[in-house]
Design a protein around this nucleic acid. Structure first.
Lengths: 352, 352
DNA sequence: CACGGTTGGCTAAACGATTAGGCAACCCGG
DNA sequence: CCGGGTTGCCTAATCGTTTAGCCAACCGTG
């Protein structure tokens, strides 16, 4: 195949200058060009199948129409995929494309990765964490527009998009309460993440609203080792649930910090001869389909809105790059709701 | 912050021309430049923190140092994440970066996405499917170097990287045989994928090697609806397993087409009062950790080497872009081994 | 001293777009 | 018929690199 065709070819074919072609194709305002000429240009452009060279354009306009997506763990969970997908589609809708890098939590690798992005003149960067936590932005970012995804920041000036953990926790517990449960256990990890705080707060809020007293003995924290791995979480959930279920007055329902811990609760229940949901209702968090639909009965849970978060993050980024100064008000943190996903693990408590 | 510093700034600081800076920094062969000058240039460059502008460089050299990764489903499985990660890291190691687009199986969207990539002058494209199947390359790709990932092609000229399904199936069944099983059931979907054929072939091969006659009544195919979704597969696996386990002489072990179907088998076993692995050994395929480690006992399985596949795909692509003509021999399909991942669901068959 | 060969570096033309500014040609009123 | 305002388009500079080709200075030699 011959050389890619360029703006000059179009200009030649239409019998005009490249300037005119550019004006027509980009619909530049305030330029006077006859209808007739426009038509010729359009015709030539599309007969030739012209597409502008992004590099050249980017070089001239100082905007690469490209945004960097840096995350610490692309691989381990489908969460990442959802966020990336949301981001990618939102970007594509605006004609932008995503430059993806992964840092595996390695600071040095992160620095070089970010430099590779900056070298390619990304218009902005979405910095994503794979579970909701506090991060600090790497130096290397400099003054590049950045938004945080599924992560909070010490610096309030940098916009972030995170799930509304409180509302999510509330929604989960509310589902249990609506089915008649009053004695509701919680299983959590001991590590103190924003996610943990928020979900627990939602738990207490739902309880309070229903007029149920908060009973600290119903929240079982176990330490997870290894941290945040599938197997580790399942085991943690198992231990925590087992403790709750063998206690004096056992809860009729369990709110588990995440779906993997809920899987552990299933196992504890099975061992103790408790059937789900007949003897025990269980609700999880995350909506990891591979877990929820692999256990029986399928797990009711609360969804982390990863797709939307990804999409909102690029939306925020675009807003940021379009406006001149630093307009993001004081409230630069966007909370996205976590909807309930009801499956088969919640029903009314057993008659006493 | 001031304007990004460019090669001119370095040249000025070092008291040389930009040409010289370029020569030094790129270590161009055959250019005579004194040690002294080199030192000055390096010093200036790194004091100023110079990094070349990728767009300008790409424009001039006609290589963007960027490769496109197009896939049909980024989001649904962690498989995607692993492939992307492998690809990304292999790319980064060569100083390249990944441009990611998703097509959701939509042909129109795919076309425009690919055009966005070509506009940005990607040096090549990795075209990935999310489960091993035959695809045809979209027209839009034109003559861009392309390699297929987890997918085969009708056109033998295009390189592809896929898992060695036969060896994987063999490894799985071999594990069962090694534990003493002779009567081994298989659960599969009815849809005819390369994956299915290969794994079944591996099954028969392992059987033959052990001198066990192939018994067609031991392979249970059920149709999956909806196709290839988590819940759908689990249910399919449940039905297939149930059929096998309620037959006259039930198998002592099950080889399930994938981990989700294995999860269904767990349920069937539970219902029939069979304990795993005591009464029934089970082995899956895919090594989806969320599934394998969420069920109890944890599922032994065979791993799909997604990370390596991603990495090999970009390696192939690089090879392709570096060589002038079309050197990939007749055997342009690379098969990657699927290692066994032993967990807790396989043991010796019960004494009869 | 004239001259050919090295050394070491510079000049300037690309790459393919965008865009500020200019300039003919035309129209119209006085 | 002249002059000023439009209209419609073009010229050329620019973005930040790479790279082909040139050239000055120097050195040793016959």
């Amino acid at each position: 195949m011959a050389r890619r065709i360029g703006i000059k070819d179009v200009a030649a074919a239409a019998g005009v200058s490249t300037a005119t072609v550019s004006h027509v194709l980009n619909r530049v305002e305030g330029k006077r060009i006859s209808e007739e000429t426009r038509r010729r240009v359009w015709k030539a452009a599309d007969e030739l199948g012209y597409a502008p060279n992004g590099l050249a354009r980017g070089l001239r306009t100082q905007r690469s129409q490209t945004i960097g997506f840096v995350s610490d763990q692309i691989a381990t969970t489908p969460h990442a995929g959802r966020m990336i997908l949301g981001a990618q589609e939102a970007a594509a809708a605006e004609g932008l494309v995503l430059l993806l890098v992964n840092t595996s939590g390695d600071a040095e690798l992160e620095r070089t990765s970010i430099e590779m992005l900056l070298q390619r003149q990304v218009d902005g960067i979405v910095y994503a964490a794979m579970y909701h936590r506090i991060v600090e932005l790497p130096e290397a970012l400099g003054s590049t527009p950045t938004v945080l995804l599924d992560a909070g920041s010490a610096d309030p000036a940098v916009p972030s998009v995170v799930p509304d953990e409180v509302q999510g926790g509330y929604a989960a517990v509310r589902e249990l309460i609506d089915h008649g449960h009053r004695r509701i256990g919680v299983t959590v990890q001991t590590v103190d993440l924003p996610a943990r705080q928020g979900r627990l707060e939602g738990y207490r809020k739902a309880l309070a609203e229903a007029g149920v007293a908060y009973d600290p003995s119903l929240v079982a924290a176990e330490t997870a080792v290894p941290f945040n791995t599938v197997g580790g979480d399942v085991d943690t959930g198992y231990r925590a649930a087992r403790r709750l279920l063998t206690a004096e007055r056992r809860p009729t329902a369990l709110f588990c910090f995440n779906d993997r811990m809920a899987a552990g609760a299933y196992r504890a229940a099975a061992e103790l001869g408790l059937s789900i949901p007949g003897d025990l209702s269980v609700i999880g968090f995350d909506n990891q389909e591979l877990v929820c639909e692999s256990v029986h009965p399928q797990l009711s849970t609360v969804q982390l809105p990863h797709y939307e978060m990804g999409a909102r993050a690029v939306a925020q980024l675009l807003a940021l790059t379009k406006t001149p100064g630093r307009p993001p008000g004081p409230d630069t943190k966007e909370l996205l709701p976590c909807p309930l996903v009801a499956r088969a693990s919640v029903t009314s408590p057993p008659r006493l």
